[in-house]
Design a binder for these strands. Structure first.
Length: 206
DNA sequence: GACAAGATTGACT
DNA sequence: GTCAATCTTGTCC
């Protein structure tokens, strides 16, 4: 039957659709995390993106279709998860930077032995991958597929007025782009929001 | 083939 | 606040 396509909005521009990923649920087995912080990376137009210099063995999935999972190794230690977005050949993706466990499970605690509070489970791109059990074996899978081991499921809609915007974290290029988005005041955000002009709150306008 | 840098985390001062 | 760990990827010669 003609199934609706609830995630067709992923085909838009990364920095524009990033806020809409907030409030979406990331699911793997019995583990569920509400996405509360993301960053936008706009493919070959973005010097901070892994896709900036065109497709490589690592980044090739970024140039595939929206809704696929791009996982990469960070500092040789952690895994980080991205949702491919935009159109085929563009290389755009959304980095999931933090989740709120819904709820924390035994499996999450077991895979995050250093965590002492629920907010330690998913408050960072490396942390949330560990808590969700996401690693390189999930590279390229379809997050919109009903039978995928890792899936995105629509969650409660987030009021644009509750979305804060700021500069991206941990990068050395294109740092001026305000492409980090989070749910205002959520305790699971990876790092405190900057004060002053650099970290303006919504609304998102353009 | 060699080397520098990296979308982070956690331990330590 | 500062800094080391750890190793893969991408770039350059």
């Amino acid at each position: 039957m003609a199934q609706e396509q609830p995630f067709s909005w992923l085909e838009g521009r990364a920095s524009r659709i990033a806020p809409r990923l907030l409030g979406t649920k990331l699911m793997r087995g019995d583990r569920v995390g509400l996405i509360v912080e993301v960053e936008a990376y706009e493919g070959q137009a973005d010097a901070a993106s892994h896709a900036f210099r065109g497709p490589t063995e690592r980044s090739r999935v970024m140039f595939d279709r929206a809704g696929l999972l791009y996982v990469y190794r960070s500092y040789g230690v952690h895994w980080c998860a991205n949702v491919v977005c935009g159109s085929v050949g563009q290389g755009s993706a959304l980095l999931i930077r933090a989740i709120e466990p819904m709820p924390p499970t035994e499996g999450m605690w077991a895979d995050r032995p250093k965590a002492r509070a629920p907010s330690d489970l998913g408050s960072g791109p490396g942390k949330l991958c560990a808590a969700m059990g996401i690693d390189g074996s999930h590279y390229g899978l379809d997050l919109l597929g009903a039978r995928s081991p890792v899936r995105l499921v629509a969650g409660p809609e987030v009021d644009p007025a509750r979305v804060v915007v700021g500069p991206r974290i941990g990068i050395s290029k294109a740092t001026e782009r305000p492409w980090r988005f989070a749910i205002a005041g959520n305790p699971h955000v990876s790092r405190p929001w900057p004060k002053g002009p650099a970290g303006q709150r919504g609304p998102l306008g353009k």
